[in-house]
């Protein structure tokens, strides 16, 4: 068994209202000379997974995302896997 470090990034899908991103954009009016737009706010979750190999780790992480960590009605996700010393 090997230990893997997962960095999971979850973002609201484009068709869903992102009130946090919108609030940031509205408040930018108070900052002079900064032109920035299209803010979307998501979340990052870090955790470790024990698995026999990277492929299996990917499978476990996908299952965890679909069953619990991500609501695919409104969110999409990506993740990276790194080997951890056990």
């Amino acid at each position: 068994m090997a230990l893997y470090k997962i960095n999971l990034e979850i973002m609201p899908i484009q068709s869903v209202l992102d009130p946090q991103g919108e609030a940031i954009e509205v408040s930018l009016k108070n900052l002079d000379k900064i032109k920035a737009s299209n803010f979307r706010v998501g979340k990052r979750i870090e955790f470790k997974v024990e698995a026999p190999n990277k492929e299996k780790c990917k499978e476990i992480t996908n299952k965890l995302c679909k069953d619990f960590l991500v609501n695919e009605v409104i969110e999409k996700y990506t993740f990276t896997i790194k080997n951890e010393k056990k």
């Binding site: 869903v16 209202l17 009130p19 609030a23 609501n71 009605v73 409104i74």
Partner: peptide
């Protein structure tokens, strides 16, 4: 119930925040 997938869809933050 939506998170349990016993009902379809989901509940987002109110439009007004």
């Amino acid at each position: 119930l939506t998170e349990l997938k016993l009902l379809p869809g989901t509940l987002l933050r109110n439009r007004s925040l």
